[in-house]
Amino acid sequence: MGLSKGDTVTWNTPQGRTEGTVVEKRTSDFTHDGQQFRASEEEPAYLVESSSSGRRAAHKEDALTKKGS
């Protein structure tokens, strides 16, 4: 798929489907909100910002759906 900063995406949350924007692509392991995430060039992770709450979350690419795709 290949997501880029600024892409509009959707993802599932316990409250239902959420829409937001890709803020950053990560290609090395990192910590976000106290949780450890694994990322690499082959399997990047993305920081996304919710359009409704403004909160940021980290997700693997396969958990995100690019809007309009």
Results as ranks from 00 to 15, higher is better:
residue 63 A to R: 09
residue 44 P to Y: 06
residue 51 S to H: 15
residue 42 E to I: 08
residue 23 V to M: 10
residue 60 K to T: 11
residue 4 S to H: 12
residue 4 S to R: 14
residue 54 G to M: 03
residue 7 D to L: 04
residue 53 S to T: 09
residue 41 E to Y: 13
residue 44 P to V: 02
residue 57 A to L: 09
residue 7 D to A: 01
residue 36 Q to G: 06
residue 6 G to N: 11
residue 9 V to R: 03
residue 66 K to E: 04
residue 68 G to P: 01
residue 3 L to E: 09
residue 59 H to W: 03
residue 39 A to W: 08
residue 52 S to W: 10
residue 4 S to M: 07
residue 58 A to I: 00
residue 16 G to T: 03
residue 44 P to S: 06
residue 23 V to Y: 06
residue 42 E to V: 06
residue 27 T to A: 09
residue 65 T to N: 08
residue 54 G to L: 05
residue 45 A to L: 10
residue 20 G to Y: 08
residue 24 E to K: 14
residue 10 T to Y: 05
residue 44 P to L: 12
residue 52 S to K: 07
residue 48 V to F: 05
residue 27 T to R: 14
residue 46 Y to N: 06
residue 34 G to I: 04
residue 67 K to Q: 08
residue 15 Q to A: 10
residue 21 T to S: 13
residue 24 E to C: 05
residue 68 G to T: 02
residue 20 G to V: 01
residue 6 G to F: 13
residue 19 E to Q: 15
residue 58 A to P: 05
residue 41 E to V: 04
residue 21 T to L: 07
residue 62 D to G: 04
residue 49 E to C: 11
residue 29 D to M: 08
residue 53 S to Q: 06
residue 40 S to A: 06
residue 3 L to N: 03
residue 69 S to A: 10
residue 15 Q to I: 05
residue 18 T to Q: 15
residue 31 T to G: 06
residue 23 V to L: 12
residue 45 A to Q: 15
residue 13 T to V: 03
residue 1 M to Q: 11
residue 44 P to W: 02
residue 21 T to I: 12
residue 42 E to H: 10
residue 24 E to M: 11
residue 19 E to Y: 07
residue 58 A to G: 13
residue 6 G to I: 01
residue 37 F to G: 05
residue 42 E to G: 13
residue 63 A to E: 15
residue 14 P to A: 04
residue 69 S to C: 05
residue 54 G to I: 01
residue 28 S to M: 12
residue 49 E to Q: 14
residue 68 G to D: 04
residue 47 L to K: 06
residue 22 V to E: 02
residue 18 T to R: 14
residue 43 E to V: 08
residue 6 G to C: 09
residue 10 T to P: 05
residue 17 R to G: 01
residue 52 S to T: 01
residue 28 S to T: 13
residue 25 K to A: 10
residue 16 G to A: 08
residue 32 H to W: 15
residue 55 R to V: 00
residue 59 H to Q: 13
residue 6 G to V: 03
residue 60 K to I: 02
residue 14 P to T: 00
residue 25 K to M: 15
residue 54 G to N: 06
residue 59 H to K: 13
residue 34 G to D: 02
residue 39 A to G: 03
residue 54 G to C: 07
residue 8 T to W: 05
residue 64 L to G: 07
residue 24 E to F: 05
residue 8 T to H: 09
residue 24 E to R: 12
residue 58 A to N: 03
residue 5 K to Y: 07
residue 15 Q to F: 07
residue 65 T to F: 04
residue 13 T to R: 02
residue 60 K to L: 10
residue 55 R to H: 12
residue 51 S to W: 10
residue 8 T to E: 14
residue 41 E to L: 12
residue 16 G to K: 00
residue 13 T to N: 05
residue 1 M to L: 07
residue 32 H to S: 11
residue 20 G to E: 00
residue 27 T to H: 07
residue 13 T to C: 02
residue 1 M to F: 15
residue 38 R to W: 13
residue 3 L to P: 03
residue 56 R to Q: 14
residue 11 W to N: 07
residue 44 P to C: 06
